[in-house]
Simulated assay, not measured.
Amino acid sequence: MRDRSSELRLAQVLVETTNTLDDDFDPEHYLSRVASHCVELLDASAAGVVFDGAGAPALATGGHPRDLALDLLGAQRSGGPCVESLGTGLPVPPVRLSAAEPAERWPEFTALARRHGIGVTYAVPLRQRETLLGALNIFVPETSRGPYADGELRLAQSIADAAAVGLHNHRAYTEYRTLTTQLQTALTSRVRIEQAKGILAERWHTGVDEAFDTLRRYARRERLVIDMVATEVIKGSLDDAALRGGWSEPS
């Protein structure tokens, strides 16, 4: 019989993980939640994510104590599952740290992990198509019932894939919001400039092109943004003599 409660919890985690369209989104807090979900769903002691945080490597961890994952990620300077997954963009299947091979492969990391009672570790990449965003590392206690195999790795990869989608969606959302703001600002500026041109053309009984040339000359002469000059014209705080700066009134 299927464990419906586990399936429901996994579905909830995946939905939460992809829901990142929020203005106050914090990547480190978000990925710490992802790591905590992995600890819960994969019977792990700790989990950690290495990711690109504003152009520099950053860490997010989950588990109890939280410093455990930080220590285990930090011990991978000379090699470890997370570093390997970051380097290759591929999963590192579950490795039993009691075997001889990991002690030769990652001596510093393996020694520290075993002192902390970690028996199995594995890592999966956070990828959005061809873009590698980070890597997720799972640390399983020696007391965990085995064997640890492909099922756990696939589950971890599914969560990592959802996290990669979430990160990608938030970056796209942020870029969209920035572009929208820029376009709105440009449109508002254009409306003010057109309004100022109309005011001057009507006041001076001239064409809007001549009025615009005067606005532009003044802005260049005073080293101002033309939108600022237009705003002053609309407010009536810029007189004709200052605006024309010695130019004769158009006939």
Rank of each mutant, 00 (worst) to 15 (best):
R4K: 10
V13T: 09
V15S: 13
T20G: 09
E28F: 01
H29I: 00
Y30G: 02
V34A: 11
A35M: 03
V39E: 11
L42T: 07
L42R: 08
A47I: 06
V49E: 07
F51S: 04
D52L: 11
D52R: 09
G53W: 03
A54E: 12
G55E: 08
P57R: 00
R66W: 07
L68E: 04
L68D: 12
L70V: 14
D71T: 10
D71P: 00
D71E: 15
L73M: 15
S78H: 15
V83D: 13
V83W: 05
E84F: 01
G87D: 12
L90V: 01
P91S: 09
P94R: 06
L97F: 02
A100G: 00
P107G: 08
E108G: 04
F109M: 02
T110H: 07
A111I: 04
L112D: 04
R115D: 15
G117D: 04
V120A: 07
V120Q: 13
T121H: 07
T121K: 10
V124W: 12
P125Y: 13
Q128T: 02
Q128H: 14
T131I: 05
L133A: 10
G134I: 01
F139N: 06
V140G: 04
T143C: 04
R145T: 13
I159D: 08
D161H: 10
D161K: 10
A162F: 04
A163L: 03
V165E: 05
G166Y: 06
N169E: 14
R171Q: 09
T174I: 01
E175I: 10
E175R: 14
Y176L: 15
T180E: 15
T181I: 04
Q182N: 08
Q184K: 13
Q184N: 14
A186C: 04
T188G: 13
S189T: 12
R190Y: 09
V191T: 12
A196Q: 08
K197S: 05
K197R: 15
G198P: 03
I199W: 03
I199T: 09
E202A: 15
T206L: 11
V208T: 15
D209T: 12
T214W: 03
T214Q: 03
A219T: 03
R223Y: 05
R223C: 03
R223G: 07
L224N: 00
T231Q: 12
E232V: 00
L238F: 09
D240V: 11
G245Q: 06
W247L: 15
